[in-house]
C-alpha cells in the first residue's frame, strides 16, 4: 500500500539532478504513505540510467521497454505509465516539474482519472501537500482524494537523493500500448549547447535583464562575470523576449525556478513574476541603477550603480579574490 512510482527522466542514459530530486521526494512520500518507492525509466539508454538510479535508494527500478518509447512523447509515455500503475497498484505517481514532468503528468492524471497537484514544495505527515499559487504569493495546503494521485515536485524544495548502501534490483516490463492511438512524432531537438553549469543545478546564478540592452552586451559584459564566478546564466523574461538570450534561460513564474546559494540580478527590476523564480535563493545580490527598483526589496546586498561600470569592476574584484 502507498507505493510511489517515480518517473526518472534521463537523456540517452544520463540524468540531471532533477531526477535525483524526484527520487528523494518519492522516498519521502513512500515513507509517509507506508509504501515503497519504485523508479521508472523508459527510452534509449534506459538500462544504463536504471543501473545508476538503482544506487540512490529506491526499492526497485523498472525499465519500460517498447519501441514506441524510444524517444519521449507524451501520448505513449502516458499510456505506458498508466498501464504500469494498474499492474503495480501504486498510489502516487511523482515527477519533478521539468518540461517533461509538466508535459506528461497531467496527461497521465487524465488517463487515470486521478487528481494532480502541480509543483508541490512540501509533503505533510497527514497526507496533505503544500503548493505555491499566485506567483508564490500564496501557499495552498491541498488534499488529493481517490485511490491514485499524481504529483509534480518543485526542484528547489527537495534535496537530491544520496547514494545508498546497496543497489535496488532492476526489472524490465513491456507495457501494453494501443499503438493506433499514438499519433505524435518526434522531429528534432535543437539543443542549446553550453559548457556552463545547468541553471537549475548551479551553486551560483548570474542573471541579466533588459538593463543589459542587447545580446552583445550579455556576451561582452555579463558572460565574463558569469564565467569568473563559475556560475550558470539566467535572464528575465524581458531579456528573453527581446532575443538577447535563449528561452531556456528565463527565470520566473512561467520560466525556471531556481534557489542557488547566490543569485546575482543585473539590470533586472524585480517584477513579481521574476521574483517567483528566485526569491528562495540563499543570498541575493542586485545591481541596478534605479535605487527604487523592487528587486532591492528582496536583495541581501544591493548596489545602486550603472551595470556597465559595476560588472567589469566586479570581474576584476572576483579575480583578485582568487589570487
Amino acid at each position: 500500500m502507498g507505493d510511489v512510482l517515480v518517473f526518472a527522466e534521463h537523456r540517452g542514459g544520463h540524468f540531471p539532478k532533477t531526477t535525483l530530486i524526484a527520487v528523494n521526494a518519492g522516498l519521502e512520500m513512500a515513507r509517509k504513505r507506508g509504501g515503497h518507492c519504485i523508479a521508472v525509466l523508459s527510452g534509449e539508454g534506459a538500462p544504463a540510467a536504471a543501473a545508476e538510479i538503482a544506487k540512490y535508494g529506491p526499492s526497485k527500478v523498472i525499465v519500460l521497454d517498447h519501441p514506441k518509447l524510444a524517444h519521449y512523447l507524451a501520448d505513449a509515455a502516458a499510456q505506458a505509465l498508466a498501464d504500469l500503475v494498474k499492474k503495480t497498484g501504486a498510489e502516487t505517481v511523482l515527477a519533478t516539474a521539468t518540461a517533461v514532468g509538466k508535459d506528461l503528468m497531467p496527461r497521465l492524471a487524465a488517463r487515470l482519472g486521478a487528481p494532480m497537484a502541480s509543483e508541490i514544495i512540501a509533503i505533510n505527515d497527514d497526507g496533505t501537500m503544500v503548493r505555491p499559487m499566485y506567483a508564490g504569493n500564496a501557499l495552498a495546503t491541498i488534499e488529493l482524494d481517490g485511490p491514485v494521485r499524481v504529483v509534480t515536485v518543485r526542484g528547489t524544495a527537495f534535496d537530491a537523493a544520496k547514494p545508498a548502501d546497496s543497489a535496488a534490483p532492476v526489472e524490465t516490463v513491456a507495457p501494453e500500448l494501443d499503438a493506433a492511438a499514438l499519433k505524435m512524432e518526434f522531429v528534432g531537438f535543437n539543443e542549446i549547447k553550453s559548457d556552463r553549469p545547468q541553471l537549475t543545478e548551479a551553486r551560483i546564478v548570474v542573471s541579466g535583464g533588459r538593463g543589459l540592452k542587447s545580446g552583445d552586451n550579455f556576451k561582452t559584459v555579463l558572460e565574463p562575470l558569469v564565467d569568473e564566478m563559475g556560475a550558470a546564466m539566467g535572464a528575465s523574461r524581458a531579456a528573453v523576449d527581446a532575443g538577447f538570450v535563449p528561452n531556456d534561460l528565463q527565470v520566473g513564474q512561467t520560466g525556471k525556478v531556481v534557489a542557488p546559494e547566490l543569485y546575482v540580478a543585473v539590470g533586472i527590476s524585480g517584477a513579481i513574476q521574476h521574483l517567483a523564480g528566485m526569491k528562495d535563493s540563499k543570498t541575493i545580490v542586485a545591481i541596478n541603477k534605479d535605487e527604487e527598483a523592487p528587486i532591492f526589496g528582496v536583495a541581501d546586498y544591493g548596489l545602486v550603480a550603472d551595470l556597465f561600470k559595476a560588472v567589469p569592476e566586479m570581474v576584476e574584484e572576483v579575480k583578485k579574490l582568487k589570487h
Partner: peptide, 9 residues
C-alpha cells in the same frame, strides 16, 4: 520550449 533547447514534433 523545453529544457535545454527547442524540440520539434
Amino acid at each position: 520550449e523545453v529544457d535545454g533547447g527547442l524540440e520539434t514534433i
